[in-house]
Simulated assay, not measured.
Amino acid sequence: MALSQRESHICSSDLVTDLLLWRKWHGGFIVLVSATTFWFLFERAGYNLLSFVANVLLLLVVILFLWAKSALLLNRPLPPLPDLEISEASVLKAADALRVWINYTLSIARDIAIGRNLKCLLQVAIVLWVISFVGNLVNFLTLLYIVVLLSLSAPVLYHKYQHHIDEKLCMTHRVIQMQYRRIDESLLKKILRSSNKDKKTQ
């Protein structure tokens, strides 16, 4: 049982790798065309997500109903539907992954609130500010479409130009670390000065 789960995990990771690196170009092409179609329908054509889902489900139900009726009349096989149920193992796996993320978020909040971790506070503040800034520029659907485009293009470019990208990333990381240390030191100096002034006034 454990071996089959491991094999399925390896198989799924290989499929994702093939998709992101365009080893099987038709898979990447289908994802790209589907994402572009959805983005165009909801962002440019003004289609509503709820009405789109309802119309697709209605069309699917009508097709399956007519297929089943015609199969009985013409002595043809019924529609090949799989078992439409979610297994307990998949629910437990999803809940376990969600629990890990929730516990990680709560541990960060505890470090900031109780541990008074200034470095963690600055990192969270920068990430939230970036999310807020990007959210003001584009809406969620366009951002999701950009993420799909980047996930289909960035791994291929990184695989092709890995050496040059790694060099640039190392240089950028060093510069960011130096700037972060300067900001951290200046903030600590300001905090120490204000605490010393408070002590002197008392």
Score class of each variant (00 low, 15 high):
residue 170 C to Q: 11
residue 168 K to N: 03
residue 128 L to K: 10
residue 119 K to G: 03
residue 111 D to V: 07
residue 169 L to E: 00
residue 18 D to A: 13
residue 9 H to M: 11
residue 24 K to P: 06
residue 84 L to P: 03
residue 194 S to N: 15
residue 74 L to K: 05
residue 192 L to F: 07
residue 86 I to Q: 03
residue 162 Q to W: 00
residue 198 D to Q: 15
residue 97 A to R: 04
residue 191 I to M: 01
residue 156 V to A: 12
residue 3 L to M: 10
residue 92 L to A: 12
residue 81 L to M: 02
residue 94 A to I: 09
residue 177 Q to D: 04
residue 19 L to W: 07
residue 20 L to G: 10
residue 143 L to H: 12
residue 66 L to S: 01
residue 3 L to G: 07
residue 175 V to Y: 11
residue 172 T to Q: 06
residue 160 K to I: 06
residue 137 L to P: 00
residue 69 K to M: 05
residue 148 V to Q: 02
residue 4 S to E: 15
residue 186 S to C: 03
residue 171 M to K: 15
residue 143 L to K: 11
residue 106 L to V: 07
residue 112 I to N: 02
residue 142 T to L: 12
residue 106 L to P: 11
residue 18 D to H: 14
residue 130 V to C: 14
residue 131 I to A: 10
residue 132 S to K: 07
residue 137 L to N: 08
residue 29 F to Y: 03
residue 50 L to H: 10
residue 15 L to I: 04
residue 100 V to A: 08
residue 153 S to C: 13
residue 20 L to R: 07
residue 137 L to D: 05
residue 128 L to V: 10
residue 51 S to Q: 01
residue 186 S to Y: 13
residue 87 S to K: 00
residue 114 I to F: 02
residue 94 A to Q: 02
residue 28 G to E: 02
residue 167 E to L: 04
residue 80 P to R: 10
residue 178 M to N: 07
residue 46 G to E: 05
residue 5 Q to W: 06
residue 161 Y to T: 04
residue 6 R to L: 15
residue 116 R to W: 15
residue 105 T to S: 11
residue 143 L to W: 09
residue 55 N to S: 08
residue 173 H to L: 09
residue 64 L to N: 04
residue 118 L to E: 13
residue 55 N to K: 11
residue 38 F to P: 11
residue 109 A to Q: 05
residue 163 H to Y: 11
residue 136 N to E: 15
residue 106 L to S: 07
residue 94 A to E: 09
residue 142 T to A: 08
residue 188 L to Y: 08
residue 46 G to V: 07
residue 10 I to K: 12
residue 45 A to P: 10
residue 44 R to Q: 08
residue 123 Q to P: 09
residue 109 A to L: 08
residue 160 K to M: 00
residue 40 F to C: 12
residue 67 W to M: 03
residue 131 I to M: 14
residue 15 L to M: 08
residue 99 R to I: 00
residue 166 D to V: 02
residue 186 S to I: 13
residue 157 L to D: 06
residue 46 G to S: 01
residue 199 K to H: 14
residue 175 V to E: 06
residue 13 S to K: 14
residue 136 N to F: 14
residue 123 Q to R: 08
residue 190 K to W: 03
residue 170 C to N: 14
residue 168 K to V: 13
residue 172 T to M: 14
